[in-house]
């Protein structure tokens, strides 16, 4: 279930209420998000679309605890994150959020294995346990045979799959994807989106994704359209796209 009217009830995994985000540039106030409401249940795959500057990435940053709203609240799995200290928020991100970035953002001096292992270094898992988790994550993304490769030795699609493995290795509550296919060719993009869909359908992950690409948005259960800081409409993506745009 995905709702934008603020009546999602307490059963939602993610609850956003009256969310405002305002930036000050020069003497001018820019209202990026205004009174935004959102409810997302567990296992949902939501795509956010909209023109540049509409607030998609800002919303994703707020949901991921990378930024704090000007007003309103965000509650994830019962934890209200908007009033957490920076330190608590960092700990919360480590436990609950898996990030997938457009530019992969792998550490170039670490192997695929070591990159995927990074979030687990913050846990109390033993070395053997960490190894088991990393191998599982890499097998899910189909890169077991590339675990000792450095990012420069991998293709763009493979790098993004390593990023996905890094995002899921600690079994976070939800995944945030910022243009995950933005830097990939169509074939690699299809592979990556297939993988994200598989995470949702087979591993019951909750995924929130920002994209410019309507074909990528088609893979989501729901597409929400952001325009000038407002979630203007919600609908199931196939119909929305066939209607000549996004819902």
């Amino acid at each position: 279930m995905v709702k934008v009217d603020g009546n999602g009830g307490d059963s939602s995994l993610i609850q956003v209420r009256d969310l405002d985000k305002t930036y000050r540039r020069g003497g001018e106030e820019i209202h990026v998000l205004q009174g935004l409401n959102l409810d997302v249940s567990k296992g949902e795959f939501v795509a956010f679309m909209g023109p540049s500057g509409s607030g998609k990435t800002t919303l994703l940053n707020l949901l991921g605890g990378l930024d704090v709203p000007t007003r309103g609240s965000i509650t994830v799995a019962g934890d209200e994150i908007t009033h957490m200290s920076a330190g608590k928020l960092t700990e919360w991100r480590a436990r609950h959020v898996g990030f997938i970035f457009q530019m992969y953002n792998l550490i170039p001096v670490l192997t695929a294995f070591q990159n995927v292992e990074l979030p687990l270094l913050l846990t109390k898992l033993s070395k053997a346990e960490r190894r088991a988790h990393v191998e599982t994550a890499l097998s899910i993304v189909g890169l077991t045979d590339r675990m000792q490769h450095f990012p420069r030795q991998l293709s763009g699609g493979q790098e993004q799959r390593v990023t996905i493995a890094r995002a899921i290795v600690s079994d976070p509550t939800f995944l945030l994807c910022d243009e995950p296919t933005g830097d990939l060719d169509r074939k690699s993009a299809d592979e990556v989106m297939g993988l994200i869909q598989e995470l949702v359908s087979e591993h019951h992950k909750t995924v929130l994704m920002v994209t410019h690409d309507p074909l990528v948005a088609l893979r989501a259960h729901t597409t929400l359209h952001l325009d000038k800081g407002l979630l203007v409409e919600a609908g199931s993506s196939p119909q929305a796209v066939s209607a000549g745009g996004v819902a």
Binding site: G87, A94, F99, F101, N105, L118, P119, L122
Partner: peptide
């Protein structure tokens, strides 16, 4: 800068 930002994003403290 980007790499350190990613480390912070995935939960590494300041």
């Amino acid at each position: 800068t980007g790499e350190l930002a990613v480390l912070k994003a995935i939960g590494f403290s300041d």
